[in-house]
Design a protein around this nucleic acid. Structure first.
Length: 801
RNA sequence: GCCGGUGUGAUGGAAUUGGUAGACGUAGUGGACUCAAAAUCCACCGCUGGCGACAGCGUGCCGGUUCGAGUCCGGCCACCGGCACCA
């Protein structure tokens, strides 16, 4: 009989579903294992061949864990709010909820086609009121604790999405989603104080089993730097506060620079001798987008504030003050002390404006470039700091500033608060109303969920307001506090809201009293293993850690971190080695692959394609290799093999080795070599026909990778139960090794031949075997053996003279 | 510029972490089966020289440590990812 993958795959998918073999049981006595993959955004295009890589990997891991006796939670859901659906809905005049339903149905069908062991009774959909009820609830809690606030700030405005973006969503000055221009715009926005958690988000990384580059990238994004804040007196009477990481260079501060938006500029308006020039510069800076500002970074520009001067507190000298857009309003205090001798940007600015450059750290040549080295320099021209190292000068000056009351140590972060408002329809409504007398008032929890109203027209507006703004009968409401007239918030939450806590909902997805029951949270937390894309490192991963820590502080969740372990997969590229995209026409559709080769072959190939963490190009040709492998297994096992469950002496060693290799490789996500090991085993079975026990072991090992064919052959062989519920085989370490070892014989470190010796034999025996080899004896003729190096079971190296 | 990562046959990739480089797969070559093709099975498959046993070379480049380096150290080059006037 032929290997009819189409029939087999449908047959077993139905049986697994009917028997609910992948159901997770909250509170089971077995040890729990929670494996998580990033839930997909159900786009109109459906699954493409990149999706199955992380899904298959975690499917293998969780199937393996299940066979080892774990109570496994491996859930799936849909992150369904978001712009593409809304844009598609606008274009085709269909309501986004209908589009979403359709897309989810298609995704579900495709995911089932691939035979994943998801617990389908726990599916979540972020757009369902039963779900976003709790997204809104978390927002209310954030507001209650002062972590959600409304602020008018310059925001990133995507000109195409007509919507604000978080800093994390702006990539190279353009929208990460649609690649359109992003401009600055002043808007009143809901903000979340993620900065309050900056330090904990760094510190707690240490105890986590995340791949190193994720930790590093998160730390860089949070961008902690230690320095000092220093107050400078001015001739206007006001003080300018600056932040610096190099307080040691205070004696070298020869001028100051403030951001063009700095509040003191306006306050000094009447004192300035050149108000027109200053105003012109401010306006020019305001017009530029962030992108333009950084694009034009090469040449430093600025205007001196004539009429006001600052005093360097260390030297007592008066120094000029400039405004320049190389100083950012949003970082530190929006003002700096400029030390051109020891800061590259200040050096360039001083050069451009002919300002004095004073050397205060010896070791470089400040007439040629700024000397920024902190390791080797020695303080000079710095009064009481002279002769010190940079490190000790930092301590000394900070102490001096503190005593004088004009400065103190300070830690700053690049991370900024999370802009949480979006001017779009297809998102969670923010449960807040604005009352004419009470100001912003949160909805009482009893009024949740605040439903997203059905609207006729959800198109974006050009005035920058949300489409909901036009819904007067929804917008106009009464204040829950005083009963007076109030208006609802019309912005919605960003897509990252629903995904910041979805893994908690999986633990107890149908709970109407809480986001999940305390028992379920206690039992399943934390996620044991979370695999996802590197592109989410500073977005979803950081946001969800923040929310989880907040929920931990509230006492809602039992752990301070959501994910114990985080791994990441590489992208699947097109056959041309380029990123798959519709416009390049190199997209591979999994449906086509399944139709031609079957789901098991696709699963195998996508895991065999290369190192899981690295990008790999698709090769339709190479898929055949995996199909052949399954065909070869089918040929071996399509007829019942009789006999007992033992192993033959010929195959015993390789069977034990393969069990060890496959298990270890699954744990280390080295699926490609696990499959290679199984291929070698099958090749061995073509040399020496497998026994009933050997076939049983092969099918058990194969089951997590290619579950359908394993199940079918399991049935044909008449083994008890289901293959996917079989116990993972154990190996005997002693049986993985030979009695004899083939060891290398080197002369002067170069391989000359190999000899066979008993395993773990004495060095003398190995040397004797090596030196009695015919070829080695010839090489040794007329030479003197001066030294021998023996590595047990590996090699003998003979040094001749 | 800063922070990560990668560089191995025609090709996707292996290599017990300093110990026989190229597992496994693809492509290719030869053979078996077949009227033939496909499929399948068997064998070969880093480069150079030699009929051959064999010899020399070989993991981006240059140097070093070591009995021994794809692996460690120093200096380059190329590509990929992240950050980028963050004081």
């Amino acid at each position: 009989m032929k290997y009819d993958f189409g029939r087999i795959e449908k047959k077993w998918q139905k049986i697994w579903e009917d028997k609910k073999v992948y159901a997770a049981v909250t509170g089971s006595e077995k040890p729990k294992f929670y494996g998580l993959i990033e839930f997909p955004y159900p786009s109109g295009e459906g699954l493409h061949v990149g999706h199955p890589r992380p899904y298959t990997a975690m499917d293998i891991v969780t199937r393996y864990k299940r066979m080892q006796g774990f109570n496994v939670l491996f859930p799936i859901g849909f992150d369904a709010f978001g712009l593409p659906t809304e844009n598609y809905a606008i274009k085709n005049k269909i309501h986004p909820s209908i589009v979403t339903k359709r897309n989810i149905a298609r995704f579900t069908e495709q995911l089932k086609m691939l035979g994943y062991g998801f617990d389908w009774d726990r599916v979540v959909d972020t757009t369902q009121p039963e779900y976003y009820h709790w997204t809104q609830w978390i927002f209310l809690k954030l507001y209650e604790k002062g972590l959600a606030y409304k602020a008018t700030i310059p925001v990133n405005w995507c000109t195409s999405c007509k919507c604000v973006l978080a800093n994390e969503e702006v990539v190279n000055g353009v929208c990460e989603r649609c690649h359109s221009e992003v401009v600055r715009k002043e808007k009143s926005q809901w903000m979340l104080k993620i900065t309050e958690y900056a330090q904990r988000l760094i510190d707690d990384l240490d105890g986590l089993d995340y791949i190193e580059r994720v930790k590093i990238q998160q730390k860089n994004w949070i961008g902690r730097s230690v320095g000092a804040e220093i107050d400078f007196d001015t001739t206007a009477g006001d003080r300018i506060r600056v932040f610096t990481t190099r307080p040691d260079t205070l004696f070298g501060a020869t001028y100051m620079v403030m951001a063009p938006e700095h509040a003191l500029v306006a306050a000094w308006q009447s004192r300035l001798e050149n108000p027109e020039e200053v105003r012109a510069y401010q306006e020019a800076a305001a017009r530029k987008s962030d992108f333009e500002r950084t694009e034009l970074a090469k040449d430093k520009t600025g205007v001196e504030l004539k009429g006001v001067r600052a005093v360097n507190p260390a030297t007592g000298e008066e120094i000029p003050i400039f405004i320049s857009d190389y100083v950012l309003a949003t970082y530190g205090t929006g003002a700096i002390m400029a030390v051109p001798g020891h800061d590259t940007r200040d050096w360039e600015f001083a050069r451009a404006f002919g300002l004095p450059i004073v050397e205060v750290v010896a070791g470089g040549d400040v007439t040629k470039e700024a000397f920024t080295d902190c390791e080797t320099g020695v303080m000079v021209n710095s009064g009481f700091l002279d002769g010190m190292t940079v490190e000790s000068a930092k301590k000394k000056i900070t102490q001096w500033l503190t005593e004088k009351g004009i400065g103190s140590e300070k830690v700053n972060y690049k991370l900024r608060d999370w802009v949480f408002s979006r001017q779009r329809y297809w998102g969670e409504p923010i449960p807040m109303v604005y009352c004419d007398t009470c100001g912003w008032v949160p909805l009482p929890e009893s009024q949740l969920p605040l439903l997203l109203p059905e609207v006729e027209n959800y198109e974006t507006t050009d005035n920058g307001e949300s489409p909901l703004d036009r819904m007067t009968d929804w917008v106009e409401t009464t204040c829950p506090h005083c009963g007076g007239h109030a208006r609802r918030e019309t912005d919605t939450m960003p897509q990252w809201a629903g995904s910041s806590w979805y893994f908690l909902r999986y633990m107890d997805p149908h709970n109407n009293e809480a986001l999940a029951s305390p028992e379920a949270l206690e039992y399943w937390s934390p996620v044991d293993w979370y695999n996802g894309g590197m592109e989410h490192t500073t977005l979803h991963l950081l946001y969800s850690r923040f929310w989880h820590k907040f929920l931990y502080d509230l006492g809602v969740v039992p752990t301070s971190e959501p994910y114990k372990k985080r791994t990441s997969h590489g992208m699947i590229l097109g056959e041309d080695g380029q990123k798959m995209s519709k416009s390049r026409g190199n997209v591979i559709n999994p449906n086509d692959v399944v139709a031609e080769f079957g789901a098991d072959t696709l699963r195998l190939y996508i895991m065999f394609i290369g190192d899981f963490e690295k990008a790999a190009p698709w090769s339709t040709n190479a898929v055949k290799g995996c199909k052949r492998f399954l065909d070869r297994i089918w040929n071996l096992a399509e007829k019942r093999i009789e006999g007992d469950g033992g192993y033959s002496s010929a195959n015993e060693k390789i069977v034990h080795r393969t069990i060890r290799k496959v298990g270890e490789d699954i744990e280390n996500m080295k699926f490609n070599t696990a499959i290679a090991a199984m291929m070698s085993l099958v090749n061995a079975f073509y040399e020496t026909k497998p026994t009933r026990g050997e076939i049983r072991t092969l099918l058990t090992l194969l089951s997590p990778f290619a579950p359908h064919i394993a199940e079918e052959l399991w049935e044909i062989q008449g083994f008890e139960g289901l293959a996917c519920q079989a116990q993972w085989p154990v190996y005997d370490e002693a049986k993985t090794v030979d009695a004899d070892r083939e060891i290398a014989v080197q002369v002067g470190g170069k391989l000359k031949t190999t000899v066979t010796v008993p395993a773990d034999c004495d060095d003398e025996v190995a040397i004797a075997a090596a030196t009695s080899d015919e070829k080695i004896r010839r090489l040794m003729e007329g030479k003197q053996l001066v030294r021998t190096i023996v590595v047990k079971n590996k090699l003998v190296n003979l040094i001749l003279k």
